[in-house]
Design a protein around this nucleic acid. Structure first.
Lengths: 242, 242
DNA sequence: ATTATCTATAGATCTATAGATAATGC
DNA sequence: ATTATCTATAGATCTATAGATAATGC
């Protein structure tokens, strides 16, 4: 079913192996291939549904090579998750910083959510590796303890920055309302990233799991209205529900 | 770590085995225990993270007994999912039917969502078995193909009934807006059911993953505001955002 | 000399089946 | 006689390690 180790097709779109490169380059390239393959496979079947052999075959190397580069399966999984998280956070924070600067004192819920979500949805739609990574995040976010811990470790900082903006937009909103609101956003976002295809079938074709542009057109406004309503009031004139 | 096979502690709250019962009763009891144990374990670690031996030990029987009652591991998993789905759907539909009857012609988005969500959140908080089942649904909903198919097979009917009500409340809303809205609701709901504990830590204690009453107080109104805003207009006087 | 990769294998599972045993059913 | 449960085991993995091999590094 998979492309196997045919020398013709370089696995997962990586460069073909061994082509006049230094050892350091070769090392980095192989590690990246293993992480890519793990990301791809873990995103479909979860931690326990993937064997090191699956990953090794996807890359076209022997299983023992994975042990050469990674302590164990769990460490590999955590590195898969950790690899792209910093860029996710940087982009989120950069977008929110920019928004805050441009908004001056007039921060709105919708504005903050647009900054947080739109950049993010674009990133997670910007290539196969990001689509896989998003689907993996979707799985992890709905998994019990271990998943919650991984989400904490990797994504909390930027999320707290969002909540800070929301707090400025809704100064009278309770902490519980703010964080439950974020919880709803988080569930909706990670289900989107998971691209399970459920909404496609359910909607009889009106929606397409892979149409992130459609999500961007709706999600920030949808959630902003929720925050504004639940928190009981918008922030003064020119409120957030536009 | 688990309670093992101590004869004193009946596993998963089931009745102790073999107590003057007919074979049919014994059969049903054992099957129920296996499904309960599977539900519990699958909800924490997913399909691949649980072995038949894990389940057998949790129940206190031999692994081969699971094969006696179930074709294979996959069939067991599907039966775990299928077992409680009819009751979920019945309760959802009954609540929505009642709401529609009582509302007369004046169906609101918030009313429909309250009917769908509140009954559901209550059910999923009504005992350990329901908490486990909800967490399992949370996992499945964010899993790729197989998960989406299981959700379709088990939960579509009641969901389509909800969309029907929403369509009546928002007659000018596009199908895409309706179903994307449901997609957001679905993600938020299944993350809630998963009870991962993430929001507890993130909010510094302001929220508690297990406080479904707090979710009930917020979720329907939050989502109703989202639908109403994204669909562009509410349905005439006395609209839905109250 | 170092290191990227492979071969070989240990030891521990895992799912599933065949067949034995010990109850209940009638 | 039937059936709920257990014993024993086949055959297939799975993770991980030890040690060999074949490149690059200097």
């Amino acid at each position: 079913m998979q492309q196997g180790k045919s020398a013709e097709t370089p696995p997962r779109g990586q460069a073909p192996k061994r082509k006049r490169v230094t050892k350091a380059q070769q090392r980095e390239a192989t590690i990246a291939q293993i992480l890519d393959a793990g990301e791809y496979l873990f995103s479909r079947r979860g931690f326990f549904g993937v064997t090191l052999k699956d990953i090794a075959e996807e890359v076209g190397v022997h299983t023992s090579l994975i042990h050469y580069y990674f302590d164990d399966k769990e460490a590999l999984f955590e590195q898969v998750v950790a690899r792209r998280a910093p860029l996710v956070n940087e982009k989120r924070v950069a977008a929110m910083d920019r928004y805050e600067r441009e908004a001056g004192g007039d921060i709105t819920v919708a504005g903050a959510l647009h900054a947080f979500l739109d950049t993010n949805l674009e990133l997670y739609d910007s290539g196969e590796e990001w689509r896989n990574y998003g689907a993996l995040a979707g799985l992890i976010n709905n998994s019990s303890e271990w998943g919650a811990r991984l989400m904490d470790d990797n994504f909390d900082s930027a999320v707290l920055r969002l909540v800070e903006l929301l707090r400025k937009a809704l100064p009278d909103c309770s902490e519980a309302d703010l964080f439950w609101g974020y919880h709803f956003v988080s569930g909706a976002l990670t289900l989107t990233l998971a691209r399970t295809g459920r909404i496609d079938k359910l909607s009889g074709g009106a929606c397409d799991s892979n149409d992130f542009a459609a999500v961007r057109q709706r999600m920030a406004e949808f959630m902003a209205a929720g925050f504004t309503t639940v928190c009981g009031r918008s922030k003064g004139p020119g409120g957030a529900t536009g």
